[in-house]
Amino acid sequence: MSRDQFDRLVTELEPWRQTLAEAEREKRKGINRRGYNPGFGFLDHQHRVLAAVLSHRNTVTLTLAARLLGRDRNTLSYHAHRTRPLLGFASPDLAAILAQPRRRTYPPRSIEALQNEITAYETNINSGSS
C-alpha cells in the first residue's frame, strides 16, 4: 500500500470513525462512567488506522510497531482492534489492496529483523526481480 493510498484510506474512514464515536457517546449517556476508562492512551486517527492495517496484514508485530511509534504495546493493540472494523468501510479499490494475500505468517519481531527485511526487499527491487 502506497503512502497516497494510506492517506486516502485515513481520509475515507474519518467520517465513519466520527459516526461510530458519536453513537458510542450516545449509548453511554446517563451511565455511571466510573471505572469505564480502560486506561489506554490516546492515539490520533491516522495512527489508529496504521495500527489496524499493520495488525490486519500482520506486517510487523504490534510490539515492534509500538516501539517504532514510541507507544505502549497495549495502547496500540487496544486501538488497533477497536479500529479494525472500520477497514470494512474502505472504498472498493482500497478494500482490494487490504484483501491482497500478503498476510505474513511470521512478521519481524525486532528492529534488526525489520531492517533485514527492508534490505532484502531493496536488494530484490534493485536486482530487477519481482
Rank of each mutant, 00 (worst) to 15 (best):
N32H: 14
A66V: 05
T59K: 01
L94D: 06
R73M: 05
G88H: 07
S77G: 13
A52G: 05
L68K: 04
V10M: 09
A95E: 15
A99C: 05
N37C: 06
P92M: 02
A66I: 06
A96G: 06
A113E: 12
R71P: 00
M1V: 12
A52F: 08
Y106V: 08
A23W: 11
L64E: 07
P85E: 11
I118A: 14
T123F: 13
Q46I: 00
L94T: 01
L86E: 11
G30I: 07
R102F: 13
A65N: 01
L94S: 05
F42H: 09
Y121E: 06
T83G: 02
F40T: 06
A52N: 04
G128I: 05
S130G: 07
Q18S: 15
F89P: 00
T19P: 00
R34D: 11
A113T: 01
R28K: 12
E24N: 12
G39P: 10
Y121N: 05
D4G: 07
R48Y: 04
I97M: 15
D93L: 04
A51Y: 03
R102Y: 12
R48A: 12
Y36A: 14
L9N: 06
S91K: 02
A90Q: 04
H45Q: 06
I111H: 06
H79I: 00
E112R: 13
L20M: 10
S55T: 02
Y36K: 09
P85Q: 04
T59N: 01
Q18N: 15
F42V: 07
Q115I: 08
Q18C: 08
N74I: 01
I118V: 13
H81A: 03
T75Y: 02
S129D: 11
R48H: 01
L98S: 03
R71N: 06
G128A: 05
Q100F: 12
A52V: 03
L64S: 03
D7H: 14
L69Q: 07
V49F: 08
I118K: 10
G41K: 11
E122G: 00
E22C: 04
A120S: 10
E12N: 06
L43Y: 10
R73S: 11
P85A: 01
S55E: 08
R71T: 00
E112T: 11
N58S: 15
Y106Q: 09
D4L: 12
G70C: 07
A95K: 15
A96R: 14
A95N: 03
L64W: 08
N58G: 05
A113Q: 12
P15H: 06
Q115H: 10
N32V: 06
L62E: 02
I125H: 07
Y78I: 03
H56K: 10
M1F: 14
R71L: 14
H47G: 00
N124L: 13
L54I: 11
Q46N: 07
T63L: 09
R3C: 00
I125G: 00
V49I: 10
D44W: 15
R57H: 14
V53P: 03
R33H: 12
T61M: 01
I111R: 15
R73F: 03
Q46L: 04
D4V: 10
R109H: 13
R8T: 09
